[in-house]
Design a protein around this nucleic acid. Structure first.
Lengths: 214, 214
DNA sequence: GTCTATAGCAGGATAGAC
DNA sequence: GTCTATCCTGCTATAGAC
């Protein structure tokens, strides 16, 4: 049987590259390790991607970016049934997305770690992460929340709040090993549910500070 | 003049190593780059530290750990004059410590980046960071804040709040490049003051959620 | 498109003179 | 304690057979 064989090697390499880059960082991973894990030939990376940095960027362009779209769609689907979502519902949906969403646990962790590396240690993909993903996502959250806030709410403070809420959520994701040690919990279903509730109520109150300023 | 010459080379290497590890990460920095910046000989690292990983750990043990002590002392000094500090004063002092404290701007950034790398990508220093620094610091914040909360406040929720508050503060520090892009501000004095106020009021309200649960 | 083979170089580590 | 010189491993990248 002739397989419909679309460039399977390329895909396998992208998969393993993403996994390893997320886990160890760009410099700590060798092409040999990637092609080994992908069960392909050492030379395949250069054939398909030209060089290592290009592979890294293609991981962002073809995998990471596509996944943010899936996450965003799912987030919007959660809210689609609700005509006028409350702030609590919006924040809750967002937190669930990052801590217990439709992605597998490993995939979600990988996704945030990859992003995290660019945020804290700017590389070639930072501009893409910020301009194509974070800015529009933040704006979307603002648009969803705004109707529930006083019309005079200061735009700049609101943006700081959104960044803070995302910051907490990301923090509970990528600092998972440290949080686990501090709290004495694995990230099982029970603990994740607790985290989502915590983030939602904490952030809801934090946003309330905006109301009192005006 | 005979200098009192304590092992100057060793200190210079530690300095440069810390700077470079924080900026680029362990794997991305070579011994050659470190000794070059420290204007010492290539072999000096192996002579003084044995190997590269040992140098990395000594950076944590001798520099990073010592700095956390300084930060903690300064934090306590800020509160020393106040007999019964309010939650707002405690959080404010903490946020100021990380965003605009007594350390130089570069040193503070370096400090948090180094920590951040271990939190998100566990290495050999994670246990030390968590057990010797984060856990006691968190506990100290709890002890300071507790008197202002209802006696029945759930310990676990309180700890989640503290982690969240520190998480936001760290996030605004290490994700500085991304935050700058999103907000369109450099981290000048004005912006830092704004951030400190934001964190304080946001966290204060978040903590208030605890009061209502009981 | 996949493989082997290898060029060419940078890295960590060490031996041994001073 | 500092330096030079060097070993050896492991890396990226590429050439060229299949």
């Amino acid at each position: 049987m002739a397989q419909p064989t679309v460039d399977n090697t390329r895909e396998r390499i992208l998969d393993q590259a993403e996994r390893l880059f997320a886990a160890k960082g760009y410099e700590a991973v060798s092409i040999r390790e990637i092609t080994g894990a992908a069960e392909s030939n050492l030379a395949a990376v250069n054939y398909h991607f030209g060089n290592k940095m290009n592979l890294y960027m293609d991981v962002f362009r073809e995998r990471w970016l596509a996944r943010t779209r899936r996450i965003r769609e799912n987030f919007l689907n959660q809210l689609a049934d609700i005509p006028e979502p409350t702030v609590s519902e919006v924040i809750g949906a967002m937190a669930r997305e990052f801590l217990d969403g439709p992605l597998g646990d490993e995939e979600r962790f990988r996704h945030v770690q990859l992003m995290q590396r660019e945020l804290s240690h700017p590389g070639k993909a930072l501009r893409m992460v910020v301009e194509e993903v974070m800015r529009p996502y933040n704006q979307q959250l603002i648009d969803l929340i705004r109707p529930n806030l006083p019309a005079a709410t200061d735009e700049e403070h609101l943006r700081l709040c959104i960044i803070s809420i995302l910051g907490i959520t990301l923090y509970f994701t990528f600092a998972r090993p440290a949080v686990s040690m501090l709290m004495g919990h694995e990230y099982d279903e029970q603990f994740k549910t607790m985290l989502i509730e915590h983030i939602t109520s904490f952030a809801l109150k934090g946003l309330a500070a905006l109301k009192e300023e005006n």
